[in-house]
Design a binder for these strands. Structure first.
Lengths: 236, 236, 236, 236
DNA sequence: GATGAATGAGGATTCATTCAT
DNA sequence: GATGAATGAATCCTCATTCAT
């Protein structure tokens, strides 16, 4: 059995040691508003032009502040990206938490999860792309990304394992690998869609992903009855 | 039925039309050697530090040539990346062309394809990452990338359709979407592995991918016989 | 006879005339404490990193106050330096005032003066270095420095002249130049020692300076009796 | 006997390891000319406004080159300063090497050395001031400075020791300390003169320094005959 | 009195690209 | 073909100082 669920070969973060401290969080109300404006502007710009092609001056300008103000709240551009990352990670994870009223049927649960992920991805795909891009060169960001990914995969993995224990699916399947592969399938698919514009019919796409996922791990999917076009709920 | 196999919302290529001509291919032997050295150096450096963080001076230095020489062979940094891209695209595509001696069994064919892709990805994952990264911001590169992807997906799609026509798998499955999703699964999995260092047991991973892929489209996979450890061949 | 005791080619002080008034001296006890904290912090920091490399924010931080508070007490960074200068100038000058119980023997008086200067320099060498550094570029500081120097040199000069009048040393020696040169010798020596870390045996150093100074102006120094090692008291 | 001729408490130089190499020396004639122009401009400007207040743009402008050209030859501003330092150190040391036709009389030799130092200092005092200023904060520059100083002091020390061996002066004097003190006397005196404008009659000053130096170590100086005013040769 | 948010001019450094040899 | 010198716009980051609370 494969058992090394994602070793990350990352080294220690290299942070400037002598740095005049930047207020973790602004103390006054005015400060909070300004900081929020900076983060919002940064997000827009990162999505529009990417991390590297966004200038501090752009962020200052769009947030209606000044150069210096940016540095009053963030040490570097990387710092805002991290702030954003934290924000988004929270959102996606919370959003994709299974709501309690989902029926116990495994196929239905897979469908619910995929739909939720789709919606969250629609909102955040560009930022995720930016984070992926940055993770490639910035070890700290890579760490964050991998950690978040782990959260998701562990949940999937646990789900698969439960089904194995219930004897519903094959015991031989490596839950960790399957979780990574199928999670990656959906992530990749949504990125191609929302970032690279490779779109299909929305309802058909989700339905297909559901089927692929369910069958992949060995679940039986009931044949389609009636017409698909009755169902579809648009994302954006 | 979903029928819009990946519209790419790319705009016109932004290429400078009036450009002092650059020798498409050097005529003399010396010229060819110099050009090759430049390309090789560029590849190394792109993989090491990424496209944007590689300087022309780095390429000149590592290839033992000079600033001017680089510009003798390439108009811009982008131009080398494209040259590299073409090289790699050819390699991967050829490598993954089904060898004639693969048995006609669909599951066996999937396995063969996955193994071949794995090997090619192991060699080129970093360059692919660089191309992905660049594609995000450079429309020309994005075009190239999507076109190559299409080649792969069409092949998959044709395969799936053939199985549907043979009545081996469900007719209802959208072949285009399934092809995109499952192709993405494998691509994403190898990138995480070779670029981000998220590794598993090699043989177990491939086997799991094979099973997932085959079952996802509705093929029956024969249960494992004997022991996994008889097979494994490490990649790196 | 040389008679131009140190012309200083300084221009007019460049001080902003219209300035919102700053309390010359705080009236309340709390105010006094805050101001003292600022000055103390400034001194530490100037010594640690030099004048130019010390930020107002550093001073505010170390003195446990804020940006605004600094500007409540001082117009500019230069202003604190001057406050410090005054403080130190007073200390050194007072410290080096000949105590009345020094015997009338010229050699003994030279020794007493050197010992006292050494002690004062040990405490203040870094600040003096900072002032010297600043004097090079800031005319106002240069004025202060030269004026203080004059005080010292005049005293030396008067002493030398007295000895000449008493017929103890040669009449031909230019008292002003000798005073400047020998004063400079001791100052330079202590700066090299306390700032640049060029140290020697403490007692031997002082003794040697005494001998050099006394003999330089033509005094006879009685030969050493006994052993040096009985005396030495380390400085740092 | 004091025996620790100048411990320098300096740590290792901290140099950026990954730096695209800068041509140690230009390969073409044009390159050499450009580099020379940069160094000359830098020297002028450092003397005029000091190291920190000189902008790279100033250097580029005055040397009739461009921003980028500066960085083609030097990594940082510090680098030019070091180049200058090396240049000047060589000049001063060579200039002050005793010419062979100086009579063997110790007093005459002291006089010759002082005159030569005075002339070299007149040319280089400002640059020395700049170096001193920088040495205070830049360990690498401090190292250079202390090393050069050592060269001078060792020569003095050897001279003093020779006189002691010849029985001309007192054996008890610590040669190392005396050398440091008297060398410092002359250095300090010339800096006050040429940098801070504290001037005296030139001839009288040199003569006085000679007498102080010679008598300090215990040499007898023949009384002046005739009139000083017949001799003087102004420096600036 | 005290606080800390806001400002923006200033300066070092990078690097793709051109050009003269 | 090959070389390396020259260019300068673009960008990050700093920090003294002001001001509203």
């Amino acid at each position: 059995m494969a058992r090394n669920n994602g070793d990350t070969n990352a080294s220690a973060p290299v942070v400037n040691p002598t740095r005049k401290s930047v207020p973790e969080m602004p103390r006054t109300r005015r400060g909070r508003r300004t900081r929020d404006a900076l983060v919002a502007a940064a997000r827009e710009l990162f999505e529009e032009r990417g991390f590297r092609d966004t200038r501090i001056s752009d962020i200052a300008e769009r947030s209606q502040t000044s150069y210096g103000t940016f540095y009053h709240y963030f040490d570097t551009k990387e710092a805002v990206l991290q702030a954003l990352f934290t924000e988004v990670a929270g959102e996606i994870f919370t959003a994709s938490r299974m709501s309690p009223d989902v029926p116990d049927d495994p196929v239905a649960r897979i469908e619910a999860a995929n739909r939720q992920y789709f919606a969250a991805a629609a909102r955040n795909a560009w930022l995720i792309a930016v984070i992926d891009e940055t993770a490639l060169r910035d070890d700290h960001v890579r760490q964050l990304k991998l950690r978040l990914r782990d959260l998701f995969l562990r949940r999937n993995e646990a789900g698969i394992r439960r089904l194995q224990e219930q004897g519903v699916i094959d015991q031989d399947l490596d839950a960790a690998i399957a979780s990574a592969a199928l999670g990656g399938m959906v992530e990749h698919f949504t990125q191609m869609w929302f970032v690279h514009g490779v779109t299909f019919d929305h309802e058909e796409a989700i339905r297909t992903l559901n089927v692929l996922w369910a069958q992949a791990i060995g679940l039986k999917v009931p044949p389609r009855i009636g017409d698909a076009s009755l169902a579809g709920a648009a994302v954006d």
